[in-house]
């Protein structure tokens, strides 16, 4: 059985092994610095489907199939799929997995969905409820525009925003046995709301939550920043990352050069006209499932704290003048 350490951290008795992962992205992401790590780049934003929502389900499905293939598992080996996305009713995931004959549970953690699913799956594996699980998340620029702003069909002039929703999906297969990096501990995050109202400034809304979860993890485990090869956040972007460093310093933790952000890794901020970086559940999911797992394979990293960050904003509540609640869940991944 797992042990709870301190207030929030759970140390797993039987680590969950990441058997393999896959990431599929859109064209803009495929033009970015991580291009060669992705399993496939979809040039057409419809991915051969009729709608953007169907396209998002398609890339999520492709990531799932590819992750199974790379892990040497078949769909019948899987006991549970934990997946989610940014759309109402978890549309992309629900429709992607409707024809897969495997138990499925939909998750919504906004852009924190990937670590939310990995944390839950790791605990289920540790407890013996599940032998093999799929953890997956997706986002699509065009479906996110419809969900949070205006449908592209409407042809609205887009308000200049600092972050760009990543078109992409990532999936990892977790198992009780096998070869691969292990999830050895998790720290679920609390919802923190610092009163940010600007939905173009989601990095600032999420940074306090990331800071809280990282600080909690370090204090619960008694580890120092130096003991990690990387502290990887989901999609704080440029300003959110700066804010995180400042907030951590106030808690007497210096992140030094250990901190990386998936949103800043996936695009070239200088040339790709994305200002602050990428966002969306697909961002951290695709980056972790490909580039980061590759770093483990190459032995470049041995211990990473992966914290996907989510802005739990509701467009309806934003129109009613509400603020943006932030959340961040951490999983500790070790070689």
């Amino acid at each position: 059985m797992a042990n709870r350490l301190g207030q929030q951290t759970v140390v797993l008795d039987k680590p969950a092994i990441i058997l393999g992962g896959a990431g599929i992205v859109g064209k803009k992401e495929g033009d970015g610095p991580l291009a060669r790590y992705f399993d496939n780049v979809i040039d057409d934003e419809y991915a051969g489907e009729k709608t953007f929502e169907a396209a998002e389900s398609r890339i999520l499905m492709d990531a799932y199939v590819k992750a199974l293939e790379k892990s040497g598992k078949s769909p019948t080996d899987i006991n549970l799929i934990l997946s989610g996305d940014l759309l109402n009713q978890c549309t992309a995931a629900s429709y992607a997995f409707r024809d897969v004959n495997t138990p499925y549970m939909g998750l919504f953690g906004a852009c924190s969905t990937m670590t939310e699913s990995m944390a839950l799956a790791a605990m289920l594996i540790d407890g013996g409820s599940v032998d093999y699980a799929v953890c997956a998340a997706s986002s699509h620029f065009c479906s996110a525009e419809r969900q949070f702003r205006f449908p592209l069909e409407y042809g609205n002039q887009r308000t200049p925003t600092s972050q760009w929703t990543v078109t992409g999906a990532g999936a990892v297969i977790l198992g009780k046995d096998g070869q691969g990096p292990k999830i050895t501990a998790i720290t679920p995050g609390k919802i923190l709301d610092q009163g940010i109202k600007d939905s173009n400034n989601m990095g600032a809304a999420m940074a306090p939550a990331a800071c809280d979860t990282i600080t909690r993890h370090l204090m619960d485990t008694g580890r120092s920043v130096d003991e990690f090869d990387m502290i990887l956040t989901g999609d704080l972007g440029k300003f959110g990352s700066e804010m995180l460093r400042d907030l951590m310093r106030r808690n007497n933790f210096d992140l030094k050069n250990k901190h990386k952000d998936c949103g800043m890794l996936i695009f070239d901020l200088e040339t790709q006209d994305v200002d602050c970086g990428g966002s969306g559940c697909g961002c951290s999911a695709a980056v972790f499932s490909t580039y980061i797992l590759d770093m483990f394979r190459q032995g470049i990293v041995k211990r990473i704290l992966f914290i996907a960050t989510g802005a739990l904003l509701s467009p309806t509540r934003m129109q009613q003048g509400e603020t943006i609640p932030g959340i961040a869940h951490a999983v500790l991944v070790e070689a």
Partner: peptide, 9 residues
């Protein structure tokens, strides 16, 4: 225009 065109990025 909605009939003859398809929205894209």
């Amino acid at each position: 225009m909605a009939i003859i065109s398809k929205p894209r990025i």
